[in-house]
């Protein structure tokens, strides 16, 4: 049976997928996960879950955010407004800008592939 492994680095972080292990039951899965994924890496907690329990949808089946022009829902669109007056607004904007950039890159790659 395949178990997917999620590692949390520091307390308070999100658990992130790091790989999977072969194991006959949950207990063995946690043991193998410890050995394979937490031996050298800084780890606060590990999750294991049977692969079959994970639902997946991929970019091939679904149009994830960013295909139609939804610029109205991005902070950067309102560029006559200066976000720097409040740290949290500026922070949100820079994260949104980064997300939009990645999205554009992915779309461009898709186009050149096609």
């Amino acid at each position: 049976m395949i178990w997917e492994v999620f590692r949390q680095e520091e307390p308070g972080d999100s658990h992130e997928h790091v790989g999977n292990v072969h194991a006959p039951d949950r207990e063995m899965a946690t043991l193998f996960a410890r050995i394979q994924h937490a031996r050298r890496m800084q780890t606060n907690s590990l999750w294991v879950t049977p692969r079959d329990e994970i639902g997946e949808v991929t970019a091939e089946e679904a149009a994830f955010g960013g295909r139609t022009d939804k610029s109205y829902r991005w902070a950067m669109t309102y560029n006559d407004i200066d976000a720097s007056f409040a740290e949290e607004v500026a922070d949100s904007e820079s994260k949104q800008r980064e997300a939009a950039r990645k999205r554009r890159e992915a779309l461009r790659e898709e186009e050149t592939d096609a």
Binding site: R73, A75, Y78, A83, E88, V89, S92, E93, K95, A99
Partner: peptide, 8 residues
């Protein structure tokens, strides 16, 4: 992450 858009 989302709120920056609302405020702006």
């Amino acid at each position: 992450f989302e709120e920056g858009f609302h405020v702006k």
